[in-house]
Design a protein around this nucleic acid. Structure first.
Lengths: 116, 116
DNA sequence: ATTTGACCTGGAGTGCACTCCAAGCGGCAG
DNA sequence: CTGCCGCTTGGAGTGCACTCCAGGTCAAAT
């Protein structure tokens, strides 16, 4: 599939897809006879996973590290899992923080309701 | 209180406090006889509120708008409340998104557990 | 044959939110 | 009186994650 289709389906821009490949986040996207990228279903799945890491706030540098480990083979599975578990804790903490701040926000909104 | 004390107590850096004042997020911080900033308890409260808006992801530009409205007087209360309610929705949506992605992350971690 | 349009590359530019720097001032310890 | 420290200012620099540009290739349409 072309880069535009992949962009459409992944929700990332074509620019971002090229950028991700350049920095090593996506490995070995196929090329067709004229040198254009040709994304496979596997690439889309990987992209979907990357997108989850991104939207949950993992820095690009960490994602690169994860991608590198994935490329290195099965013996890195433990380290990858550890990365995900650390990340999981951060996401959990972030949800807790947001929930806390939401309560404060609600309180503030209530104050506006009381006044008007 | 000095800028260092205010930094300590707000959790922001002195750099950031000056920056926030410069862009109009904090209005009229007092100065002492030698021209140094002298933060009052009120400023700390305002800073704590700003910090909640920031950590929940409100862009600086929106916070400036809110600060501007606050300065403009009581007749802007409705608009301020509307801003907070819109922001509340975004925070809620963000929590929902994070929770969703957390589930996917958990699933991925389970897969690693199954393998190792 | 030429135009069009999607794609390629390396490198430069952008926006956000800080973060730091240089030059200077005020107060106080030695 | 000198040195130092913490503060002041305007302006420049930084890091992150894109985002865009220039110049070029290729295949299909006119």
């Amino acid at each position: 599939m072309t880069i535009q289709e992949a962009a459409q389906r992944s929700g990332l821009s074509a620019h971002t897809l090229r950028y991700y490949e350049r920095i090593g986040l996506i490995h070995s996207v196929g090329r067709n006879s004229s040198g254009h990228r040709d994304y496979a279903e596997r690439d889309l799945q990987w992209l979907a996973f990357l997108t989850k890491l991104r939207t949950t706030g993992m820095p690009i540098a960490d994602m690169c590290r994860y991608a590198e480990l994935s490329r290195a083979g099965a013996h890195t599975a433990g380290e990858r899992r550890a990365m995900l578990e650390r990340h999981r804790e951060r996401v959990l903490a972030r949800i807790a923080e947001l929930s806390q701040d939401l309560t404060a926000l609600d309180y503030k909104i209530e104050m506006y309701k009381g006044v008007s």
